[in-house]
Design a protein around this nucleic acid. Structure first.
Lengths: 198, 198, 198, 198
DNA sequence: CATGAATGAGAGTTCATTCAT
DNA sequence: TATGAATGAACTCTCATTCAT
């Protein structure tokens, strides 16, 4: 009861505000910890970083995958949104390349994301679903436009390509060197895409 | 061993035979367990599968990476050896493609290999060394020949390319579908390699 | 804690009371187990004796030496405090003897203490530090006073003397016979201290 | 069958010689290992140092204490023998001091001896018996002579004194500093012995 | 008699998860 | 609703000890 007993709108508001602050702190903490120690980091580490108890983590995110999904969703959304702008600004082929590299950046910064996605652990399916729901259609659209413009010669399944790029970022670390490596390989993949159909 | 080899070799051979049987059982078990549960599977699981005590595992392979290396080395060797034949049989460009696909097969069948290689855990460095020592030079040779033949237009670091292919196999599973997926993506990477220099 | 202390303290106090009960049980259990099996007794044994899980032991005492220190600190403090009274009551020489015998009692009751102190294991350094911080200055003071009073003829390093007394209690067990033995030998050491300088 | 089949006196001699060589190597190795790592060192370490299999260690010394006793017996004997010479050379009081310091040297060099003696583990009783049988009578004789010569004023049980000295060496390590510390404390004990009866 | 491979109990330690407050 | 103490399963690793050869 942190408020005066006379009103109760206030306490509700306060509690909600607190809860949302917690949630936010949690997401920030998880993001930082995932980046440092991967998505398998101890729950306690995240809780401590967020300044909350472990129980709070479990309350908001009963499954680890829930937390992972939540953490990545926001940046995933930003990544998806970037597509619109790129499409409006660049020709189809270039927009595709630019967006894939943008996506590469996103994934490379999230060590463990690809691992989680492909762990086979059913707990991560919701996360995979997020990918399917948001990212796959985005890439599909970019690919279709690029193909229509004659910019790519190969057929490719959008989700498959997405997974491949994520994999290429695996184990590269968030260091500049790792990023460069990932980017180089992704560019190779994109070059392959442009190759004329066999 | 001051006696004739005929009377003395028997016990020695027998003891050695037993030990080697165990060692073989261990390698088989580890291979199976790695395939099912990844290279981080509990040592005890492997020991049980092999029908030996944990101590035996530790006796033969003090470090987990020793076991992993041993499990993969044989097939890695076969993969390396395959290069000679391919080089002798096909033109440079095709030999390169064929060997990379051969390598893809090998890696795709070893779930967890790529993960272990890139885990950053220093325990897996010997494994990475094996790669550097055996596979990297092989690919380097194939790339050089293919480039001399004008079959490839892009520059690429052999070890980097090897790692990329391994990554592409990550999480694909040993199922036919997984294999196909990996292969498709690797073909894309190879197509990228053939693209004329930017 | 934005609320009045009367409504908020209850749960906090209760939680703390539980934790402290556990902590107490832990210290009691550890004390008993140390006495029976020495300070190297398995953590699990202590946990079981205290009726808690091993995790609880590690939570409260991440290092074994933390537990040992905690177990001994209380009695060590009592021992240190006894010096004041003895100094106020007896002449310098007698006060020294009395306190050393008091210290002997304390150490003789803690089988394994001396062993731990001298194990060379760096884990026990905090324990040794406790000795240095609390007991050594006490003895130093007593020695200085006694020397000023002409009661002792030999030079001795306080910490060295403390260690020697602890050693003399080693393996004597908490039985009356063991105690007597230790005391006899300590008296001999004290007699040596009184001998005129060579 | 390392010899010719025509005689069998030779093989027997050889086998015996081999066995004794092994035994000697074992004792040397154990001595070295005990000095370095204490009497709780892994059996395998000793076997390896001796160049024999662990089975051989167990054959010769089924109990660890058997090995410890055997290792220490030889030097204990030398220590006992030293008493004769000291008694013949020095006056009673000085002979006592000299011998006790000789004994101190012996014990200080054997880290873990005192610990083993007082571990309470019944396995070490044979070792304690050795002490009683050989060392205690020696000290008893020296004490009696010294007392007859009026060199000591305190009563003391020889075995008790022996144990005390051993304890004083506990944890001092084989380093010069450790030795000095032990010696200083033992001299204090000896000074206590000389003190006139209370 | 010697060997050393094999065994497996046991100790340390970490964390996911629960639940009383 | 938040907390964090408690729990205990699970893992790694070490050695004493046995026994087939």
């Amino acid at each position: 009861m942190p408020t005066s007993p006379t009103t109760d709108a206030a306490p509700t508001r306060r509690r909600r505000a607190d809860a949302m602050q917690n949630l936010d702190a949690l997401l920030e903490a998880a993001k930082a910890v995932f980046a440092e120690s991967g998505v398998d980091a101890p729950v306690r580490t995240i809780a401590e970083r967020a300044g909350v108890g472990v129980g709070t983590v479990y309350r908001h995110f009963p499954l680890r995958s829930d937390l992972i999904s939540a953490v990545f969703r926001r940046e995933m959304d930003a990544c998806v949104d970037a597509a619109d702008e790129l499409e409006a600004t660049y020709p189809a082929g270039e927009a595709l390349d630019a967006w894939v590299l943008r996506y590469t950046e996103f994934v490379a910064a999230k060590q463990g994301l690809a691992a989680a996605l492909h762990s086979g652990d059913p707990a991560y399916e919701p996360l995979a679903d997020s990918f399917s729901t948001r990212l796959t259609p985005t890439l599909a659209r970019l690919l279709a436009t690029a193909r229509a413009a004659g910019a790519i010669g190969q057929e490719v399944e959008p989700s498959e390509f997405l997974a491949a790029v994520a994999n290429l970022c695996h184990g590269t670390g968030p260091s500049p060197r790792g990023r460069e490596h990932a980017e180089r390989m992704v560019r190779l993949l994109l070059a392959g895409l442009r190759a004329p159909a066999a």
